[in-house]
Every structure is written in structure tokens, then in C-alpha cells.
Design a protein around this nucleic acid. Structure first.
Lengths: 235, 235
DNA sequence: CGCTTCTTTGAATTTCGTCAAAAGGCGTGG
DNA sequence: CCACGCCTTTTGACGAAATTCAAAGAAGCG
């Protein structure tokens, strides 16, 4: 990973959070950001931690997962470069509602609640961007709720794979490769099923040539076929 | 229902959306609102409709439900007096992502995207309030996702009932009564199960004296016991 | 090369959805 | 006021789907 090629104001200007801001405001954003390098598998924050900050991934990937009192967990989402996380709880709880773990070595920026609030008052556009971002996530969450409530495991896994491809897909000769390592357990926790069921489904698709996994890296070879399964009520 | 006793600026000032605004701004809010009376069971908007506006319930209750391509649906939430709805899609889609149906006769206010945007630019506090509101909803959605993915139907119904009690509970001699009519199907669509399973569970609780339903009105008689079921991993 | 972590696979069990049908409530209109 | 019809709820039986239990196989790492 490049040392700090991304620590320029240009990077922040390209984030959805800071879209349509004047250069002077971007300077302020860059100046108040705290930047940290995080090792693979390291935790950026834990569910229940106080001292909430707003975070953004500069380079790398972060997994956001919520754990219940019984230990069962769901992957809420993966955060890639330019995306924000941990910001929802800023104005609500003062406690993080989920865990954030780096999937690969990651460079991360963050702002305190006071800093972000000040930026938003000065630049209402930032607040509007935040609404935009979490609005989309709320819609996605509601879709996933419907899927979980009404569809079988196979379709949910198909949706999970497609969503990952859309969010973190990289085109290769072989198909769409998902840019970060994914364990079967991760897929299961996204789709809302068990490690075992997810394994069976993915292995079956692998045998059928719909996708391939090599070293925890998943490649979608026949997106159209997986899309068909995702929509096929008989699965 | 009172004719238009709620159409005063005071009502808007009490909404979370317009919290901490100067009186002059509240006046503007009131002036630009379009107010409508909606009959029981009438649709305020349909999933897929264009021409999105931001809505708020002044009096009554609205059910927000999302329907999949296969017809299966989930109740996303119920909106009571003072709460907003339909606002998430404002900055994202230009299309409503769900249906809104009045459960009882309802008085509803709405603003166009342009109006709300103007209000937010002038008063960034409004945008911050929106973030607060949809942030809470996103957290709730993520909790429900975890429940749907990991818990059995009994616990989910228990959570649904408790959530309803918290949101729309009215204390009576008999216990906490939920302020609006609820069909078994509604409970099922909230909990993410079928009408039949929901009926079995609720009937069993009714026999055990944990709750009562009279004329589609549900009263929670033993919240603590239902809370125990909601947390009990063995259910 | 051995250990740890992840994945695969089989079999038994359970839960819940589906199918089916009857019973109950409420309002309407005769 | 009663009877009819529609909508909602209850209940039973059955079957499919997925979780759980169990164990072995593979792959990467030190």
C-alpha cells in the first residue's frame, strides 16, 4: 500500500460525504481529520464503545458487524475506499452500535462529533450528503429485511453475492472479482444463514461454474445466472 | 377527530424534525406545508410512485410497507403523530421505495423536495434533525435484520410486540394498549413470519394471559414476561 | 512438517411455512 | 331485528427447508 498518497485534500474532495464543497471547506476537512493506519484484522471500534467519531476509509476495507446478546452476528456492510462508517451513532447514541474490523490493511480518517457538527453548520451541503448516504443505506437495509423475512437461503446468498459484486467488484478476464477476502462465514453473516448452508450453496455454484473462489477471493463468472436465482421464487 | 386544531405552528415546533428552530423558521415551515386529510385504508403513496415529497403525520397512523416483486411484504414501520415518512427517498431515488397506507383517518402534511431543501439550507439544524431521525431508523433496521437472521419466530414476534408498545403504547388499567388497530397479518409482516405462525403465537400468549386483543386492539398485560421471551435464546 | 483455521459433507432433528378448512365477528341490507 | 356475506382468525396435518450435530478433509502459516 502506498504510504500516504491518499492524504491529500483531493481525496476528500472525491468522497460522497464532501461532494460539492468549496475548496476552502475541503481544506478544513482535511485539516481536522485524524488519520490512522490499521492492520489487517485489527478492530477500529467495538460495539458499545463510547467516544464515537465519524470515520471514513481512505484505502482498504472495513467490515461492520452487529452482535446480539446471544453471540449471533450479522454483517451490516463492508466499507470501501471513500465511504463513511460509524457516523450514524454520532447523533443518536454516543455509543457504537456495531463492531468495525479491518479486513485488510487499511488507512482510515475520522472526525470528532464536534468537528463534524461544526463543518456541517458551516456547510449544510455536508449534512445533506450525509442524509443522502444514510438514506441509501436505510433503503438497502429495508430491502434486506424483506429478503430475510420472505426469501429462502439460496436467494439470499445470491443477493448477497450480487450486492458484493456491485459494491466491490473488479472486472477480470475470469469475471467480476470481489476485491477483498471473504470467508464462507462472512457470506453466511451477510445472507443471514449459517456457515454450513452458505458453504453448500456456494460449493454447488462453484461446481456449476457460476463462480470461483481461490484463496478466499470470490469471482463471479456468470452474474446473469446468479441474478436469475436471486429472482427465482422457486429457490 | 378534531377538525384542524393541529394545524398551528405550535404543532410543527413540537416535531423532532423541526426541533430547535427559531419561530420565524417554524412559520415558514407551516406556510409551505401542504396538509391533507386521508381516509382510513386510503393510500398516501405507492411504491414506485414518482414525485416524491417529504411527509409527516399530524394526527393518525400510517403503515409503511415494502412489497417485493413476488408480492411478499414487510411492514417497515408505523408512523404516528409528529413523525416523518417518505423522506428518505427524497435525495436518493425520486421514487417512493414503499407503500404508505393510513390505518385510521389521518391528517398528513407534506413538503416538496425543493421546499425542504430550501428550508434545510437556511436552517442546517433541520438537516441535522433528519440525520438524527433516519440514523435511529437505520439502527433499528439493522437490529431487525439481526433478529430476522438469527432468531426464531417466537422471539421476533415478542420483539415486534414490545417495539409497538414502546412506539404507540397507551397505559390503561389493563396494561399497555397499542393505539391503532392491528391485524394478525400486520404483526406477521412486522415480525417477518406468516399470518398463521403469528396467530398461533399470539393466541398462545393470550391464553396464558400475557396479552389481550379486542376488536383488533392489542393490550400487553405482562410486558416483563414478553420481554423474557424476546431475550430467551431457547424460544 | 505440524498446527491452526477454514471448508466440505453427511445425517438427524426441528422449525416453520403450506395446504386445508372451519369458526368467529362485524356490518349491511332486507 | 335477523340473516347473510365478507373478512379475519383459529386450528390441524403435512412436508420442505435449513439448522444442528458430527467429523473429516484442505489449505495456509510458522
Amino acid at each position: 500500500m502506498s504510504k500516504d498518497a491518499h492524504l491529500t485534500p483531493q481525496f476528500f474532495a472525491g468522497m460522497e460525504l464532501f461532494r460539492d464543497l468549496p475548496p476552502a471547506a475541503i481544506e478544513k476537512v482535511a485539516a481536522s481529520a485524524r488519520v490512522r493506519r490499521v492492520a489487517r484484522e485489527a478492530r477500529i471500534f467495538n460495539q458499545g464503545d463510547a467516544g464515537v467519531r465519524a470515520h471514513a476509509v481512505i484505502e482498504g476495507v472495513v467490515r461492520i458487524a452487529q452482535t446480539g446478546s446471544d453471540g449471533a452476528q450479522v454483517v451490516v456492510r463492508f466499507i470501501g475506499a471513500g465511504e463513511i462508517f460509524g457516523a450514524v451513532s454520532l447523533f443518536t447514541d454516543a455509543r457504537y452500535p456495531a463492531d468495525a474490523v479491518a479486513l485488510v490493511e487499511t488507512l482510515e480518517a475520522s472526525w470528532s462529533e464536534a468537528e463534524l457538527l461544526e463543518l456541517m453548520i458551516a456547510q449544510p451541503q455536508i449534512a445533506i450528503n450525509v442524509i443522502h448516504i444514510i438514506g441509501k443505506r436505510l433503503q438497502e437495509a429495508q430491502e434486506r429485511m424483506r429478503e430475510l423475512a420472505t426469501q429462502g437461503a439460496t436467494r439470499r446468498v445470491a443477493h448477497a453475492v450480487l450486492r458484493l459484486g456491485r459494491q466491490a467488484g473488479r472486472e477480470t478476464a475470469d469475471g467480476t472479482e470481489i476485491a477483498f477476502p471473504l470467508r464462507r462465514k462472512d457470506v453466511a453473516d451477510i445472507a443471514g444463514t449459517t456457515l454450513h448452508t452458505a458453504s453448500r450453496i456456494l460449493t454447488a455454484w462453484e461446481s456449476a461454474g457460476l463462480l470461483a473462489t481461490r484463496n478466499q477471493h470470490l469471482t463471479i463468472r456468470q452474474p446473469s445466472e446468479i441474478a436469475r436465482i436471486a429472482e427465482d421464487a422457486s429457490d
